[in-house]
Design a protein around this nucleic acid. Structure first.
Lengths: 736, 736
DNA sequence: ATGTGGGCGCATCGCCGACAA
DNA sequence: TTGTCGGCGATGCGCCCACAT
């Protein structure tokens, strides 16, 4: 794992410097600002930024939202944009850009973290410019850290700092408890690479960890008040680092005495408009903790949310927020409408296009409008990146993923969305579609309302399809059932406690308990064929979570989220539910031992998977969301893999690599073998690999799927033509 | 004296707020920012800003210079604008604006002062919009203040603050010296209206004034370091106030984490361009102590410098700078060229159009380009505003001002500028123009080179006109000589030491001593009729200053500059010189007692003037330069007065007021009396008061002059027609 | 497990005149 | 006239524990 920090490169801002003098000025400024190559520690920066913040990768494609940028300025200046702001008709509400530079910063006065990004508008994805220096690392959130909100005692001059026990034991070097009292000196560095030394002592009755000498000086220098937070992390080199977060009320940034708020709002729009017109870079600051919402959105994340699912009024959703303890928590709500936030200046903008209502009354302080990519819906859950970039993810493909012929890329909503359904105009051939009923029949019916609550374990998918006016009996792909039974032994939940927890119980519970809140009259699809249909939209993923467990709150949610990011295919969940629905799943899982989950090596299970062995290609779930040039490769019953298609010269080279990845040597480059490669492009069309000019293929491939001769044979019954036009097999619309 | 501070009005920024919610937000913000109507004390603000800073008045006309604004941003961000900045071809380099709002601010963290101005672009001077709320006061610099740079002892934790003796005696309440030791408690307020209490004690051996208890807390709270300055003032209500100035090196403002420097530069340009295109207000911040040069220039000041004098290569000039003790000092230099600072983006801009060279090598840190209005030249000296707004100025009109029929407003350069001369196309009637030679003949010739220096006392005006290729014999107005002798007794310099000092000796000395530096070959006008002409441009005001005195450096320059601001009419200087040229003026004046000059009440002399008595209308020499809606009224031989024309309903009301002002009851409203009122509009046309619609008159009147029947008779000989077309009487061009 | 407060030693703040400069 | 220093008191920082939650 290449541990390369964000590099400080000559800024795009100054690439146009027209003389040597300016260049030298720049050099001096950089030294002034950063000292001699004083780079900000990326892990520490991300620790300060919080678990929800992920920066785009250099070279990747993003959408830049001027409205969002303007919001950040509004928050920083306490001034919203006025009507004095001119229109920039040539500036779209979302500007496709390539990220040219990302630098991390921290305010020298307040330690407030922020990032500078250089963005270059591009015409299309094919317009991307290869960024030469690519050894950059994606956002890495620290594994070992703690964050404490300072008490009055912590900040008073009367004493030191009371260290939470777990934090001291997890982060600080082991104390020599033989000493009386046990004492050591801690040397800690802050964002500016200043070193602070604290006396760490374990004393008192009862015994406790304290920071004494040195602490008050730190509090004074950073001007900390009760309510501010201090966070410690241990980086890869086991060095202790610390950061500061101010209490929100103290973040009331004074109005800048440099520029009026209006001029600032105009400035960001004019700068973006000018850059868009000239295809030149422009530079922005992103202030994660001040900014209401991210306004630089990775292309894939945007696409997934906007094209990958159909958001409609009445739909339930979840959204992640940071807790006071710097962990994530999901809040639930209902979409109450879709409309332009600013119909005059930004018509048809996706920015905060969703009007929502939160379930909990204490959410009043939260925005009542969100953007599609901010939320999780039944159709595109778990879009948030994981805290744990370390964990490999291949294995659960083996366990759960897609055992039917799923031609969709996992990064796109894997529930068949209305959009895709509309594409299916042909009736299905009668000889395929072994129905979902088969699966149902294999699972013993769980009586409804064992604890007074209805059970949707088995009926959910069919109900979804009912809701969308589709015959559920026509839905389930042909091969799913067969493949399901192909690896039955691996779907043993008791042996995978970590996996079991990945299905988010909280999501499920909230979802369920708030079902009554759904405004039925606003449902877009209203084809109630039976009374239970009222839940079909509410608990769309109820079945998905039927294998979920109650989570031990003391267990870090990091790992859980890492897993959940891959639970994207509801049919997977269905299978899980299928296996477990005859038991009290929750109690069963809750009782499983979780103690070892944090050191649980997932990689070893991958080696048991159906063909592929471990490889030296690193996976990072950030790729999934942020990078358009890495493609997923799937094979039924095998570990999913990722590959950078653009690194190959031509099809044969690509095929050879895939062959070796999946142990299919000689099969893919031999057309007589019967194996086929198909791919999904950005328009969700399914195409045969090799048909298109290589460059075009590289530019539009989203994911690749390996089809065995058997799968090809099954598909051939409706022909590749249907595949091409529908993108899915065996899913049809009911004539409505 | 109406003591009304700058009022906080609903900001122009928000005048376009489109709903109630925004309005309430605004209200909250204002409270947040300013507390409950916590207005910043204007005197204190100006004390912090320094003696050179004068803010434009609400309602007045100014030129806004985007380049200058950009410079301020560059300084604040440490980033100059890059080539990425787009061009705004429709944004002129100087934008004529009306000032709609001026609010004073101070940074809550650093106490750094700044001002916000709302500017509205206007098409022409006639486009001005009467600002309703008009009880505003011009910039008032405090009379009683001192400023001390803090020493290491002052800021150490070891002791208190050593108060300079003069400061303590001048500002602080009188100590009871009977006490042992003399002690009192001082309660002082800062810019944010916080109160600080200090123990003021007079002790030690030798005795000295100290601030002890309370001081260290103040130093800590304001984070003062040695090198920073603290200033105390006593305001009108005898309350003590204090302010803070940071040492320049500490002013390195961090790069804003809100907006990139480029976006800021773009923002100011785009905001101004948009406002200019739509004639809407825009809002700017002006940071006097960070800003390299003012970029909002009163129209009159601009005109005076640009049209009122011909600046050319080789010309000597002076320019005011603030000293470390917060006083003014003039530095001398030579104009070395005229060119565009940025020929590509801002062609033909007056901003820093002058390339200059400073006399003193230690001026290297000073700009090597300046704008015309920043400098004093022989043709337009003393453009800087005074520190002493308290001093009344009427009397010197009596003493010195304009005893000929001068129809020019004093706010315009009173030396007949080339521009105006060009307007005079008709040859003069032979029966007027009693020549300047008459004046000369009345003055005994002073032999040249008494101390090795040439004497220009008498020849200066004629030489000026020679230089401009005009026959000096045709220049002097008819009535000047007669009026000169009307009040001979008042022109007694020995009885007016304060007056004598107003002509700046330093300027004169430096000017003279550096004459050899002048590049004669670059002189624009080269009509040398005799060898002494080489000095005619260099020492143009040599004669003007022939009545000048060597200034006691210990005397504050405030008063001097107040006076000097009115020495605008070279014929005045000429008269002065005329009276004194038969003596060694310098030695004579130097020997005059200056000790009482600071408490010298000028008002009492005004009561002796030839007709008008004192009035309750306040004069402020700032009006002279900055105000377009206050108008000067002049009458030959009387004290000049100011009046707000817009406060009257119609001509008769205005005439009545002027009558009572000048003791002319019944004469002006009676057309048969023979008295006339004429006025000069913003285009320097001279018109009869009453001809125009009242509103139009109010919108364009610049100054008013009362003509006696005698003067009217004299004028009638060439007719009002000539007056209208020329704007000056009896001044003609030689056919060139 | 950890926030707060009393006790108390001692470091530093802060008031004083004595010197210069 | 006023900046700095040695002197010395008294304030309050900061380390310790006992509680309480």
């Amino acid at each position: 794992m290449a541990s390369v920090e964000e590099k400080l490169k000559p800024r795009g801002l100054f690439s146009g410097a027209n003389n040597l003098l300016e260049g030298m000025k720049l050099l001096k400024e950089m030294q002034d600002q950063n000292g001699v190559k004083k780079l900000i520690n990326s892990e520490l920066w991300h620790a300060c930024a919080g678990p929800l913040v992920t920066l785009p990768l250099v070279g990747s494609l993003v959408y830049y939202f001027p409205q969002g940028h303007s919001e950040q300025v509004a928050v920083s200046t306490n001034r919203t944009a006025t009507t004095q702001i001119p229109n920039y008709p040539n500036l779209p509400s979302q500007l496709l850009c390539q990220v040219h530079n990302v630098t991390l910063h921290a305010d020298k006065e307040t330690d407030e973290i922020y990032a500078q990004m250089s963005l270059q508008p591009v015409n299309s994805e094919k317009d991307v410019f290869p960024i030469p220096d690519f050894g950059l690392k994606p956002s890495k959130h620290p594994t070992e850290f703690f964050c404490k909100t300072l008490t009055a005692s912590d900040t008073s001059t009367h004493g030191g700092f009371s260290v939470p026990r777990r934090a001291a034991e997890k982060l600080f070097p082991q104390l020599d408890y033989a000493m009386q009292p046990p004492t050591q000196e801690l040397v800690v560095r802050d964002l500016h690479d200043n070193t602070w030394t604290f006396r760490h002592i374990y004393r008192g009755q009862p015994k406790r960890h304290l920071l004494t000498t040195g602490w008050s000086m730190f509090v004074g220098a950073k001007r900390l008040r009760a309510g501010d937070s201090v966070l410690f992390i241990r980086d890869e080199k086991s060095q202790l680092l610390l950061g500061v977060r101010r209490v929100k009320s103290q973040q009331t940034t004074m109005p800048s005495s440099v520029l009026s708020a209006d001029s600032m709002h105009i400035g960001i729009l004019a700068a973006a408009a000018h850059a868009a017109a000239n295809r030149t870079q422009f530079s922005i600051f992103y202030n994660p903790r001040a900014c209401p919402s991210e306004f630089v959105i990775p292309l894939a994340k945007f696409r997934k949310s906007v094209y990958g699912s159909q958001l409609s009024t009445g739909m339930r959703f979840g959204m992640m927020f940071e807790t006071e303890e710097s962990t994530k928590r999901r809040y639930m709500g209902t979409i109450t409408g879709t409309s332009d936030l600013d119909p005059l200046k930004w018509p048809n903008s996706k920015w905060r296009s969703l009007q929502i209502e939160w379930d909990e009354p204490e959410c009043r302080d939260k925005q009542n409008r969100v953007s599609p990519w901010e939320i999780e819906t039944p159709e595109s859950p778990f879009i948030f990146p994981s805290l744990t970039a370390n964990l490999k993810r291949p294995f659960h493909s083996t366990l759960i993923r897609s055992s039917h012929v799923d031609l969709q890329c996992p990064s796109v909503s894997s529930l068949w969305s209305e959009q895709l359904l509309k594409m299916l105009i042909k009736p299905p051939p009668p000889n395929i579609s072994p129905s979902i009923q088969e699966v149902k029949d294999n699972a013993p019916q769980k009586p409804q309302g064992e604890n007074g609550q209805p059970d949707f374990t088995n009926s959910s998918i069919s109900q979804v399809l009912h809701t969308q006016q589709i015959d559920p009996l026509q839905v389930e792909p042909a091969s799913s059932n067969a493949l399901l039974h192909q690896y039955p032994g691996q779907v043993d939940f008791n042996s995978f406690p970590g996996v079991r927890k990945t299905v988010d119980q909280e999501f499920w519970d909230l979802h369920f308990n708030n079902a009554a809140k759904c405004d039925l009259s606003s449902l877009q699809y209203n084809s109630s064929q039976n009374p239970s249909d009222i839940y079909s939209c509410l608990n769309l993923d109820g079945s998905s979570n039927s294998g979920s467990a109650i989570i031990d709150p003391s267990v870090s949610s990091m790992i859980l989220d890492d897993f959940s990011a891959d639970f994207q295919n509801p049919s997977d969940y269905h299978l899980v539910g299928n296996f477990c629905s005859n038991q009290d799943v929750q109690s069963q899982i809750t009782s499983a031992s979780l103690t070892d989950s944090q050191t649980f090596s997932l990689q070893e299970y991958a080696d048991n998977s159906g063909g592929a062995s471990s490889s030296n290609v690193d996976f990072d779930d950030n790729n999934l969301l942020q990078q358009s040039s890495w493609q997923q490769i799937q094979k039924a019953g095998s570990v999913g893999r990722s590959i950078d298609v653009s690194s190959f010269k031509y099809y044969d080279e690509l095929r050879s690599e895939i062959e070796s990845m999946f142990g299919l040597e000689g099969l893919l480059n031999d057309s007589s073998s019967g194996w086929k490669l198909v791919y999904v492009d950005f328009e969700n069309d399914v195409l045969l690999v090799g048909d298109d000019p290589w460059e075009e293929f590289v530019g539009c491939v989203k994911c690749i799927r390996i089809l065995s001769p058997l799968e090809v044979k099954q598909m051939s019954e409706e022909g590749m033509q249907l595949l091409n036009s529908a993108g899915l097999q065996g899913v049809v619309t009911q004539d409505s």
